[in-house]
Design a protein around this nucleic acid. Structure first.
Length: 594
RNA sequence: GGUUCGGUAGUUCAGCUGGUUAGAACGCCGGCCUGUCACGCCGGAGGUCGAGGGUUCGAAUCCCUUCCGAAUCGCCA
C-alpha cells in the first residue's frame, strides 16, 4: 500500500475540461470501473464531483501500467499524469472530452467487493443500503440529495441573517412534557430517578428568548419524537425553527413567503408567486377532506346529503339522520379506469379509514350505471348527477358516514386515485397556507379537549370567550404551510399573557397547580413583560425530500432509522451494561411475552 | 397494537398447483485482447432458499411460530 508521501491533489475528478489539456494533474479518488484491453488499460476514477477517465499506457509508464492490473472496484488511488484530448470523445460524461495519461499510480487503500453497487442504477434493498450507508452515500444521487439539503439550509440561513434573525442554541436535555408526542427520556445520573427529555421542539425556549428581547430568533435544530415512523417521519428530525416578536399572523406569513421564495429560487431556480394560496381549515377540510390538501388535481369532495336526506335508501338517509353525511368525489372522465373488481379494492382502501362502504356511479351515454341505482328514486339520481356536476364518462365515488370518516376516507382516496392514475403534474410545486385551525380537538381516549396545535397557541381575539363557553368552536391564530400535500411547516401566534395562558390550561383540564408544576417557568416569565410574538417551524427533512423528489425521508438523511427506530448501521438502540444501569439507578422490568 | 407486501448466489430476481443435481442476469475470479467507456471473447467459482418447528416417502414450495425490511391505520400537542 502506498501513502500520499508528498502527493498533493491538484484537481477534483469531475472538473477537468479541454482547458486543462497538457496540464500535469494529480487526482485522487475511488476506482469506479477498470477496463483492460490487454496493452491498454482504462480506469474511471470517482470523487464526489464526478468521474474522470485515466489511461494506463506501457509507453507512458510501464510501472504504472503494471501496477494498474491489481486495481479493483472501490480501491482508493492517487494518479499523476498529463491531461490529453480524448481519441474518442464520450459525450455522455462532463469530462468526456479529456483523459489523463497516468505516469504514476499510488494505491492508498484497497477494497473488498462491496455488497452494493456504487451506482445510481443500483437496486439493492433498502435494508442493505442502510447497513452499508457509507457505501450507499458514495452514489452520485445520494451526494446530490445531501447537497440539495445543504443548499436549502444555507439558503435559509442566508435569509435569516439578512433579515435580522439571530441563531441561538437551546438545550437538548430538557424537561418532559405532558402534552403532545411521546418524549425520548434520558436518565439523570446525578439526580437518580429523574429524567431529562429530548426536545420535541424548542418551543418554550424560543418563547423565552422573545421574553428576553431577542426579537428575531432562528435555529436549525434536531428534534425528537418517540412515535411510530412513516415514510415522511423519523424519530429524530431537523426543524427550521423561527420566532419573532411584535408581529401578527400576516407578518409571519409574509416573511415566510419571502423565505420560501428565496429557497425555491436558489435551490430549484423556480420563481414562486406570492401571496400563496390560502385555505381556512374549514375550507380545506370540506373541499379536500384534509388539512394538508394537495391541490395539484381536482376530485374535490361534494356534499350530496341534501339530495339524499329523505331517501328510501336507508344506508344514506339513515346515516344522515344520525348526524352523518354523504359525500362524493368525481373522478372526471375516468369511468373506464376502474372495473368492478378494482372499485372493490378502492373500497378496501377506504375501509382503513373507517368507511363501511364505497358506492359508485358510472355515467354512461344511456344513463347511470350503479349497483345502488335501483334503491334510489329518479330525482335522487338526477340530483346526485347535478350536484356532482357529472358528465358522461365520469366515475363518482361516495362515502356515507360521520364527518370525520367521510373526510378521512375521501381525502385519502382522492390522493390515492390521483397517484394511481398518474394525473399529478410532478413538475408543479403546490405551496399553500391553511389557517384558522381550531384551538382544540376532542381526544376520545382521554375524554377531554387537547390542543390541536399546542397549548401556547393564541386563540383568535374574537374567539377567546369561546374557550369557556364552546371550546370546540374556538379558532386559533395557527397556520400550516403545505407543499404538494405534505405539511412542511406549522406555526402560530403565541399567548403572551399569564391570564390567557392560564385560561388555556384550564380549558385543557389542568388545574393552576398542575400548570404551574409543568410550565411554571413560562407562566413566571409572562409576569415580566412578554411581547406579542409568534413563529413557525419547518420540517427540513420533509422539505428536502420533496425538493429532491425522493420517495421517503430516509433518502435525505445521511444515517436514518428504520421503521422500528433502529439503525442497521450501528445497531442502535443497544442493551446498556449492568454497571451503566446501576450508576443511573435503573432496574429493568422482566419483559414478559405478553 | 392492527392490516398488507416482501426476505432464494455478492446484487436484483425467476422458481412457489410439493418431485432429478435450485436457475438467469449483473457482479466476482482466471485467461486473451492497444481506444474502451453497459468493452468484447473463452473458462470458472459461488446457495443454511431469513430462522425454528410441523405435515409428507419427499418442502424453497403447504401449515404454525418467530426475526428482519417496507407501506399503511392507530399514534404523531
Amino acid at each position: 500500500m502506498d501513502t500520499l508521501n508528498g502527493f498533493k491533489r491538484t484537481h477534483m475528478c469531475g472538473v477537468l475540461r479541454r482547458e486543462h489539456i497538457e496540464e500535469e494533474v494529480i487526482l485522487m479518488g475511488w476506482v469506479q470501473k477498470n477496463r483492460e484491453l490487454g496493452g491498454l488499460k482504462f480506469l474511471d476514477l470517482r470523487d464526489r464531483t464526478g468521474l474522470c477517465q485515466i489511461v494506463f499506457d506501457e509507453e507512458v509508464s510501464a510501472e504504472a501500467f503494471e501496477k494498474a492490473s491489481i486495481l479493483r472496484g472501490e480501491f482508493v488511488v492517487a494518479v499523476k499524469g498529463i491531461v490529453k484530448e480524448r481519441y474518442s470523445v464520450n459525450d455522455e460524461m462532463p469530462t468526456g472530452q479529456i483523459e489523463v495519461f497516468a505516469d504514476e499510480l499510488r494505491i492508498l487503500s484497497k477494497s473488498e467487493v462491496p455488497p452494493i453497487h456504487i451506482n445510481d442504477d443500483d437496486t439493492a434493498k433498502e435494508s442493505l443500503r442502510l447497513k452499508y450507508r457509507y457505501l450507499d452515500l458514495r452514489k452520485p444521487k445520494m451526494f446530490k440529495k445531501l447537497m440539495m439539503r445543504n443548499k436549502i439550509s444555507k439558503s435559509v440561513r442566508d435569509f435569516m441573517e439578512e433579515n435580522g434573525f439571530i441563531d441561538v442554541e437551546t438545550p437538548v436535555l430538557t424537561k418532559p412534557t405532558p402534552e403532545g408526542a411521546r418524549d425520548y427520556l434520558v436518565p439523570s445520573r446525578v439526580n437518580k430517578g429523574k429524567f431529562y427529555a429530548l426536545p420535541q421542539s424548542p418551543q418554550l425556549f424560543k418563547q423565552l428568548l422573545m421574553v428576553s428581547g431577542f426579537d428575531r430568533y432562528y435555529q436549525i435544530v434536531k428534534c425528537f419524537r418517540d412515535e411510530d415512523l412513516r415514510k415522511d417521519r423519523q424519530p429524530e428530525f431537523t426543524q427550521i425553527d423561527i420566532e419573532m416578536s411584535f408581529v401578527d399572523q400576516e407578518e409571519v406569513i409574509s416573511i415566510n413567503e419571502r423565505l420560501l421564495q428565496k429557497v425555491f429560487k436558489e435551490t430549484k431556480g423556480i420563481e414562486i408567486e406570492a401571496p400563496f394560496k390560502r385555505f381556512t381549515y374549514e375550507e380545506a377540510m370540506s373541499r379536500f377532506g384534509s388539512d394538508k390538501p394537495d391541490t395539484r388535481f381536482g376530485y374535490e369532495l361534494t356534499d350530496i346529503s341534501e339530495v339524499l336526506k329523505d331517501s328510501e335508501f336507508k344506508v344514506f338517509s339513515g346515516t344522515i339522520a344520525k348526524g352523518g353525511m354523504v359525500q362524493g368525489i368525481n373522478i372526471k372522465g375516468q369511468m373506464d379506469a376502474y372495473s368492478r373488481n378494482n372499485i372493490k379494492k378502492l373500497e378496501k382502501f377506504v375501509a382503513d379509514y373507517g368507511a363501511k362502504g364505497l358506492a359508485w356511479f358510472k355515467i354512461k351515454e344511456d344513463g347511470v350505471n350503479s349497483p345502488i341505482e335501483k334503491f334510489l328514486s329518479e330525482d335522487e339520481v338526477k340530483g346526485i348527477v347535478e350536484t356532482m356536476k357529472a358528465e358522461v364518462g365520469d366515475l363518482l365515488l361516495f362515502v356515507a358516514d360521520q364527518k370525520k370518516v367521510v373526510y378521512d376516507s375521501l381525502g385519502a382516496l382522492r390522493v390515492h386515485i390521483a397517484e394511481d392514475l398518474d394525473v399529478i403534474d410532478r413538475s408543479e410545486y403546490d405551496l399553500l397556507w391553511v389557517t384558522d385551525f381550531p384551538v382544540f380537538e376532542y381526544d376520545d381516549e382521554e375524554e377531554r379537549f387537547v390542543a390541536k396545535h399546542h397549548p401556547f397557541t393564541a386563540p383568535k381575539f374574537e374567539d377567546i370567550e369561546l374557550l369557556e363557553t364552546a371550546p370546540e368552536k374556538a379558532r386559533a391564530n395557527a397556520y400550516d404551510i403545505v407543499l404538494n400535500g405534505f405539511e412542511i411547516g406549522g406555526g402560530s401566534i403565541r399567548i403572551n399573557t399569564l391570564e390567557l395562558q392560564q385560561k388555556m390550561f384550564n380549558a385543557l383540564g389542568f388545574t393552576n397547580e398542575e400548570a404551574d408544576e409543568k410550565f411554571g417557568f413560562l407562566l413566571e416569565a409572562f409576569k415580566y413583560g412578554a411581547p406579542p410574538h409568534g413563529g413557525i417551524a419547518y420540517g427540513l427533512d420533509r422539505l428536502a425530500m420533496i425538493l429532491t423528489d425522493s420517495e421517503n425521508i430516509r433518502e435525505v438523511i445521511a444515517f436514518p432509522k428504520t421503521q422500528n427506530a433502529t439503525s442497521l448501521l450501528t445497531d442502535a438502540p443497544a442493551i446498556a451494561s449492568k454497571s451503566q444501569l446501576e450508576e443511573l439507578g435503573i432496574q429493568l422490568m422482566e419483559l414478559s411475552d405478553e
